[in-house]
Design a protein around this nucleic acid. Structure first.
Lengths: 159, 159
DNA sequence: GCTTGATAGTTTGATTTAAAACTATCAAGT
DNA sequence: ACTTGATAGTTTTAAATCAAACTATCAAGC
């Protein structure tokens, strides 16, 4: 275990390695899902799918809320929603109660897409976590959230 | 543990949640490091730093290898290296042994940057992993690599 | 009511990214 | 030598990204 033939890595080396592995996994997940979408000849990007995913769970939220959920800037969201409106997946509706808001609702097309796409997403994630226990995943999530807390503590500006 | 008052999440729900947390952490790491760079008035992006990081460990590799290490497309690397050459951090050298390759070497400036930047990177990662044991990190890396293996198995094209 | 600060969305500009089509080069088998 | 397939790099194009400056609206306190 501590044999001299094994190169010893420092904690920050390991942390950097974990960051890299994390990115590799995320790229691969995107790639796998995008491949599956393409195989079925659907004209939609991975990023749009991320937005749809949240709308399927809660329809009629505003752009800022979607931006928070997808961890993107609100200006990116203007661009994204524009694009999704063009492709008739969602529609913008003025909020009568607060006229600053534009509420985003799924169109029939957007609702219909769920039937096709949701199983594929689940399939990819299930494949990735094939031989995992629930508690493995919980452990991972917990570790990340701890790291996020540490970083936020020293950099409170970051929401 | 299995109380009816607790909402039960499926494995793929948890996997998706982990994906989100992962992205949040990555954004935050980038943000923290970029802030630190900016505080010290250095004109360099996080992405360039990632390239430098690998060159500091092994100088004189080709663009494709850097792309693999940083998990980016080779066309992104053309753009990136162009930019870094302009800022005199690296130089392109034709490989006499294989004329397809352009070997990337650090300039004096690029070497010098290590002294300043490396401690900051380590500092951010150390902060993030403050109260972690080495084995926590190893556990996380191991979990990611398993997931990557599963995905690659079913999608061998993805290098 | 009016001011002040916060919030939602947009626009603009610059950067980063990947996919696809392309050129050049190498390497292996015939 | 010659073909064939693989590999490295570039160019082009379309998406996606964020920061900063801007408009419109709300909400709280005076």
């Amino acid at each position: 275990m501590d044999s001299s033939s094994v190169i010893k890595k420092s904690k920050s080396d390991l942390a950097i390695e974990m960051g890299r592995t994390m990115t590799e996994l995320r790229n691969l997940l995107r790639q796998s899902i995008q491949l599956k979408i393409k195989e079925h000849g659907i004209n939609i990007t991975f990023e749009m799918l991320e937005v749809l995913y949240h709308l399927w769970q809660k329809d009629g939220i505003n752009q800022q809320e979607i931006a928070d959920l997808t961890l993107k800037d609100k200006s990116s969201m203007t661009y994204m929603i524009d694009n999704m409106v063009k492709r008739d997946m969602v529609k913008r509706v003025e909020d009568g109660l607060d006229r600053r808001n534009k509420l985003i609702f799924l169109t029939e097309t957007g609702i219909e897409l769920r039937r096709q796409l949701h199983p594929w997403i689940a399939e990819v994630y299930d494949l990735a976590t094939e031989d995992f226990e629930l508690k493995n995943l919980e452990y991972g999530i917990d570790m990340f959230q701890k790291m996020i807390l540490h970083l936020r503590k020293s950099n409170p500006s970051s929401d």
